[in-house]
Simulated scan of single mutants.
Amino acid sequence: MKTTLADFTAAHDSDRPILLTGGAVVTMDPSIPDLDAGDVLLVGPQIIAIGADLRSDPGHGAAAASALVVDTRGAIVGPGFVDTHRHAWEAQLRRSIPDVSDLGEYVMSTLAGVAPNYAPEDMYIGTRLAALTALDSGITTMLDFSHNSRTSAHSDAALNALIDTGIRGVHASMGPHFGE
């Protein structure tokens, strides 16, 4: 039976162990070698163990046996990436201004032209889209450099979008460059 996102979320929220098994494990830790195929044992937000076969490991076998199993064969298991500078509110503008060739044109078309018309709902949509695309590409933490926070409702909408996606997000609000 395939593990669903609902299964994963329920296990995570209840601190039930989660065993990611069979994938290529990239540890990013010089003291723990990468594995062509291995296991990663999680409890809540913590990585408890990494190994070739944790179900057979004397120290982690019981937790691995009670874990929700996620088959990661054919995938790469690695730590999440951090994006330290994303203007999330603009996500839905991506590819809509193809003729912008320099910073001045960007400022005039986006910050002076489009941004003053943004409502809080637009902030939510852009920020949610940015967070979801970040998660889809392996980014688990992002700083949303939100330089179109026109009102507290605009910032609240952006914060709610970060919360609703489940990404670890920091909303760094800044007043708009143009408009009120």
Rank of each mutant, 00 (worst) to 15 (best):
T4P: 08
A6T: 12
D7H: 11
D7W: 03
F8E: 04
A10Q: 14
A11I: 07
H12N: 06
D13W: 00
D15F: 13
D15G: 10
D15Q: 14
R16Y: 09
P17A: 10
T21Q: 13
G22E: 09
T27M: 01
D29W: 00
D29H: 01
P30H: 07
P30E: 10
P30I: 05
I32K: 14
P33N: 11
L35A: 02
L35W: 03
A37N: 07
A37H: 11
V43C: 12
V43S: 11
I47A: 00
A49P: 02
I50H: 01
G51C: 07
D53C: 08
L54G: 09
R55A: 13
P58V: 02
G59N: 14
H60A: 06
H60I: 09
H60P: 00
G61P: 00
A62R: 12
A63S: 13
A64L: 00
A67R: 07
D71F: 05
T72R: 05
R73Q: 11
A75E: 10
G78K: 10
D83L: 02
D83M: 01
H85R: 09
A88G: 15
W89D: 03
A91S: 13
A91G: 03
L93S: 08
S96F: 12
P98H: 08
P98L: 03
P98V: 02
L103F: 15
L103T: 08
G104R: 13
Y106E: 05
Y106A: 13
V107P: 00
V107W: 04
M108K: 14
M108P: 01
M108C: 00
S109T: 15
L111P: 02
L111F: 10
G113M: 06
A115G: 04
P116L: 07
Y118R: 08
E121L: 05
D122I: 04
M123V: 04
I125R: 14
G126K: 01
G126P: 03
G126H: 09
T127H: 08
L129R: 09
A130I: 06
L132F: 08
T133K: 11
A134Q: 09
A134Y: 06
L135T: 01
L135K: 05
L135N: 04
G138D: 04
I139K: 04
T140P: 08
M142Q: 06
M142H: 05
F145T: 12
H147Y: 03
H147C: 05
N148P: 01
N148Y: 02
N148C: 12
S149N: 09
R150F: 15
A153Y: 08
A153L: 10
A153M: 00
N160T: 05
L162M: 07
I163T: 15
I163L: 14
I167K: 03
R168T: 11
G169Q: 06
V170F: 13
H171F: 12
A172W: 09
S173V: 11
S173L: 08
S173N: 00
P176C: 12
P176R: 05
P176F: 01
F178V: 11
F178L: 06
